[in-house]
């Protein structure tokens, strides 16, 4: 007892050191995120769980609909487009992003009573002079015969590669082409679709 009493100051010091060490380990365990350091990156450890979270972004789903998803249900369109020149142009470029449409369609599999909303028809009468961007932002799924869906690629622009220009100038500049074909002035919103169909665009 006497010994303890005599060296008390040293025991206090030792206790403080040990308590400090335990406290440090405890605080570190509280502050370091879970799975931190499970993976080593190029510049040190990181939180491994972040990878799984990022795999689920955004909101756990793939939003941009690839053509093969559309073709799962719309087989006839696939057949129609298979040989067409515009097979590389994605469905969503003319029909809107269709994210909601696909979600509803997937949920409706095996449910006979399910109702999938029909596509909005974008035409000049109902939408005024809305731009393509405005129409696409407003509607998840649309069908249209509006000329701007064609002109977003076929309007000749400075900077287009020459071979692409040569493709579109087979018929001359789009303005010349329209003049040649005797299109009415001012152009109707569905001018292109008077001769070309949407899916197989050969005249």
């Amino acid at each position: 007892m006497k010994f303890i009493w005599e060296t008390l100051h040293l025991w206090i010091l030792l206790t403080l050191i040990i308590a400090g060490g335990v406290g440090f380990v405890f605080v570190q365990q509280q502050l370091v995120p879970e799975t931190y350091g499970d993976l080593q990156g190029r510049y040190g450890p990181y939180r491994a769980a972040a990878l799984d979270e990022l795999k689920l972004q955004p909101e756990g789903s793939i939003r941009f609909i690839a053509d093969n998803v559309c073709h799962e249900c719309h087989e006839s369109v696939h057949e129609e487009r298979a040989e067409a020149k515009h097979i590389t142009v994605s469905c969503v470029h003319c029909h809107g992003h269709a994210t909601e449409h696909v979600q509803l369609a997937k949920a409706a599999v095996g449910n006979e009573n399910a109702v999938i909303p029909v596509a909005h028809i974008w035409d000049d009468e109902s939408d005024g002079n809305a731009t393509m961007a405005a129409a696409f932002a407003k509607h998840d799924l649309l069908t249209t015969e509006h000329k701007t869906v064609c002109l977003s690629c076929h309007e000749r622009v400075v900077g287009m590669p020459e071979d692409f220009q040569s493709i579109i100038t087979v018929v001359g500049h789009v303005d010349n082409h329209l003049e040649e074909q005797g299109a009415d002035e001012p152009l109707a919103f569905n001018t292109c679709f008077e001769c070309h169909s949407g899916h197989d665009t050969a005249p």
Partner: peptide, 27 residues
């Protein structure tokens, strides 16, 4: 050798095992 990754003070800029540079939204 990503400069963005090197300067991150919280190890939120990460390189996935596939070599994709990502940002940990939590950190």
């Amino acid at each position: 050798d990503a400069p963005c990754n090197q300067v991150c003070p919280t190890h939120a800029s990460i390189t996935s095992p596939e070599g994709v540079e990502l940002v940990d939204p939590d950190l």
